[in-house]
């Protein structure tokens, strides 16, 4: 199925829960209402002619602000494909940074478990309904979410100094000065 057909099918089933679709881009993508992402994924997996049984990748993104007054936003991108029909698609959801809650899709694909933990750990996206939403790559008592744009490394971790001592400025930075 082409992306147009897949997105048309989604729109037919979920109506205005599909906020936006983009089929012109290099990677066609549909933006979904965060509250209904789990249902949409469930439908994509179980519908026989869609058959998206394989979740490739789940990416957390911190969107760069375009305008100054705008509230900062986080985004989750889901890449999935069907190993039988051999087609693929992508979905995304956008949530405000003050309330970064997205329903978990662990019940749909088990592989989402670790990917969601990673997105929580590094990006601070909270997946509601996740069985074990703990840090996976950083230590349990680490502070902050490293992939956020405003992340500042903590000074000390368990009594150890964390940031390296000041390095020599890079060559190009010197030239700029």
């Amino acid at each position: 199925m082409t992306s147009e057909e897949i997105f048309a099918k989604l729109k037919e089933k979920f109506g205005d829960k599909i906020l936006e679709t983009d089929t012109e881009a290099v990677q066609p993508i549909a933006t979904v209402d965060p509250a209904s992402i789990a249902e949409v994924c469930e439908f994509l997996k179980n519908e026989p002619d869609l058959d998206f049984k394989f979740l490739n990748c789940l990416t957390g993104v911190h969107i760069n602000k375009v305008e100054e007054e705008e509230e900062e936003k986080l985004r989750v991108v889901y890449n999935m494909e069907s190993l039988v029909i051999k087609h693929k698609t992508a979905l995304d959801v956008i949530v405000p940074i003050s309330k970064p809650n997205v329903p978990s899709v662990t019940s749909v694909w088990k592989t989402a478990n670790w990917h969601e933990r990673e997105a929580y750990d590094l990006m601070g996206i909270v997946f509601d309904g996740h069985p074990d939403l703990t840090r996976i790559l950083c230590p349990e008592d680490w502070e902050g979410h490293p992939l956020r744009k405003d992340y500042v490394v903590q000074e000390f971790y368990q009594g150890m100094k964390v940031p390296y001592p000041e390095e020599e400025p890079k060559q190009e930075e010197k030239e700029e000065k």
Partner: peptide, 15 residues
């Protein structure tokens, strides 16, 4: 733009 690219590495799909 944005894209998901991948290849088959000895251990599987690296995307």
């Amino acid at each position: 733009g944005e894209v998901y690219g991948r290849t088959e590495t000895p251990r599987g799909e690296l995307g």
